[in-house]
């Protein structure tokens, strides 16, 4: 009960911030909507040139764009919520309150989920209205795909936060860029088999690659590849444990080095 209140306290802090800052709200929806415009028209062009096969390819492309935004917004939402505390020079107060580190992480995850929904929902509606692509045609398995991509975003964000604790705000650029660096290996727009053989193990170590292989199979054949989902879930659990361990170690290291006193520098 006390934990729930503390988690809500930190969430309330961020929700109050969004209520008072429309540019932040706009930023949440801007990029996913822009992405959907660009890739939506590109898909429409491909479909018009290739015919029926092109329509399937266009659907796969749009599904990839939308689901990758789920991972991107989840990762950025969590990391940027943490950075908001640094930018407002408020971390000192937060860390000397009774808020446990895991409660901080839970609040950041909850805020990330809210930010992701606000950011991606308009893009999903845009895809449906402008390009007649309904992501929900994937059926209930869509929820499992989305949860796995959100989880991947969260453990990557936890890794970024750990680096910020270790290296200070100098590492904050990673909050925006890290997932873009992973995109080539995540098999968002093409199957893992397209990658050179030596790169394929890297792709297969990422939950996203399994999610997108599963999504393509579902859109193409209507079949659910549960093996891919099982791999995605297993990998997410393993990576989450590794990220949690890294966070715990870096948090303690920051308490030893005094980094929490000067983390904004």
């Amino acid at each position: 009960m006390n934990s729930a209140r503390r988690i809500w306290g930190l969430m309330y802090r961020h929700l109050a911030l969004y209520r008072r800052s429309w540019p932040r709200l706009l930023e949440l929806t801007y990029w996913p909507t822009l992405q959907m415009c660009i890739w939506g028209f590109t898909s429409a062009f491909i479909a018009s040139r290739i015919g029926v096969g092109g329509q399937v390819a266009a659907g796969i492309l749009l599904g990839g764009v939308l689901l990758w935004e789920v991972a991107l917004r989840s990762q950025m939402g969590m990391a940027i919520s943490f950075l908001e505390e640094i930018w407002s020079r408020n971390l000192g107060h937060v860390f000397v309150s009774p808020l446990r580190p895991w409660e901080l992480v839970a609040a950041l995850i909850a805020m990330s989920a809210i930010r992701m929904v606000i950011g991606v929902l308009p893009a999903i509606l845009l895809a449906w209205g402008l390009y007649a692509f309904n992501l929900f045609d994937l059926g209930p398995v869509l929820i499992l795909f989305a949860i796995n991509l959100m989880a991947m975003g969260w453990w990557i964000a936890l890794g970024v936060i750990s680096l910020i604790l270790r290296h200070g705000a100098g590492a904050e650029a990673l909050a925006w860029s890290v997932l873009f660096g992973i995109t080539p290996f995540a098999a968002v727009f093409y199957p893992v088999s397209i990658l050179p053989a030596w790169l394929q193990p890297i792709a297969l170590a990422l939950p996203a690659a399994h999610v997108f292989e599963g999504m393509r199979a579902a859109l193409d054949t209507g079949l659910i590849h549960w093996d891919h989902l099982a791999w995605a879930i297993g990998l997410n659990i393993a990576w989450t444990l590794a990220a949690a361990l890294l966070f715990a170690r870096q948090f303690r290291a920051a308490r030893v080095s005094g980094a929490l006193l000067s983390i904004g520098e």
């Binding site: 209140r5 503390r6 306290g9 309330y12 802090r13 009774p98």
Partner: peptide
């Protein structure tokens, strides 16, 4: 003050 009220229970 509300934020810290929640954080401190």
């Amino acid at each position: 003050l509300r934020v810290y009220g929640h954080l401190y229970g």
